[in-house]
Write a protein that binds this DNA or RNA. Sequence first.
DNA 1: ACGCCACTTTGATGCGGGTCAAATACAACT
DNA 2: AGTTGTATTTGACCCGCATCAAAGTGGCGT
Lengths: 242, 242
Amino acid sequence: MPVTNTAVDLEQVRRQCARCDLRELCLPAGLESADVDRVDQMVADRTNLAAGDTLYHAGSPFRALYVIKTGAFKAQTVSEGGELQILGFHLPGEIMGFDALAGERHQCSAEALEVSSVCRLPYAELERICATVPGLQRQFMRLVSREIGDDHDHMAMMGRNQAISRLALFLHNLSKRQSRLGRSSDHLTLSMSRADLANYLGLVLETVSRLFGRLQEMGLIEVRRREVKILDMASLKELGDN
Amino acid sequence: MPVTNTAVDLEQVRRQCARCDLRELCLPAGLESADVDRVDQMVADRTNLAAGDTLYHAGSPFRALYVIKTGAFKAQTVSEGGELQILGFHLPGEIMGFDALAGERHQCSAEALEVSSVCRLPYAELERICATVPGLQRQFMRLVSREIGDDHDHMAMMGRNQAISRLALFLHNLSKRQSRLGRSSDHLTLSMSRADLANYLGLVLETVSRLFGRLQEMGLIEVRRREVKILDMASLKELGDN
DNA sequence: ACGCCACTTTGATGCGGGTCAAATACAACT
DNA sequence: AGTTGTATTTGACCCGCATCAAAGTGGCGT
């Protein structure tokens, strides 16, 4: 590894938020440059995870929230009866851990679906800085509220009794989120297994597999394992609307 | 109406939170007496609604949050395809409107299921006071987070593919919330119709009606229209766990 | 008391998606 | 290349819940 100028390194570390691709989606969105630096200083560390690694477990003490930098995660709970339910899939720019704000322990687990990295936001410091940086509190509330909105979308999807509507809605929704990240909206690489997706949609994995086939027969998509190409977005959206 | 001392009336108006039965569940929970008064002064008005009245519509401008004082509400969205989905039922002590924090408009509608009353919390003032009263911000976050937790419970319920588990889970959950309000945990008076409940559970109303019958045959509950008496809480819970 | 109307219950029938089972595809190892 | 293990697809069967239909119940206004 080449020797580099230490001063430059420190500067890079300190100004990571300012140069992050996600800064317009993340906490710093809309803040003054000086305030972005304060957020930056709060970030305890930036961690890398492999697929299958757990970011936090349900029941573990709540210390921090996590912003996803790269990769993808699933959030899930296990009921007392042992039934697992996937509550959501999370992409870069989204914050995980909001469910723990009410208590002192995480209510669900977060697991990386692929190689991922996150920024750790110690909650005690976040609270403190929110109280002094006026715009930050508001931006934070916007992100919490977006989480609630996403959950509502999930419920609306689970309410559909036609299974194919659920899958269509999921694909359309994922496509929108991809394009918000500046990625292609018609080519998706699913990071979750059929089993995960089925659980999320309230179906069994065989049904999901068959539905992908049906959507392909109908000419709306092209599927090959986890690669999905959307051919007819309008029809897909209409199918989701029922 | 008898003539009363004006000074006493003003005092009553000003100290409503301090004497409210819900003060330990609501925003003032855990605050100093002086801070409770500040919250009290923020409350714009306390409104009464009849069954079927709408507190706010999806798409209407977001100005305030509402704490339920008495009665019950349902929150619902309508998809672009016209499909209605009930997102939750809300009881006294719960705050409605969190989904709107991200934007400037309500994302769903809130409708009273029975005669109800609410306290109106103008959001601009709430933000301002949260910044100055240290405990209030935290209590506010706890309530937001509880909303997220409730939504997660709803999703976990929708994920069950046995319809009877969903109903059992709903009844058990409602029972817990009732007892948190100091009401009987084994006698429920449902404020929603079978159709509303079915929509919430992701079923059709006939199925819900039949399931109530089944639970009664099984000896777990006693039902008569909207009156439900829980006879065997343990079995009900077990059925919900699957 | 009466009729009206909304809500709920009950019945009959059919299909969508769950369940069980097996084959296939693919990645990651020797 | 061959082997192993996991993920996905495909097939056959059938049950639970949706659908359609009709009857029953209770509240409310006149």
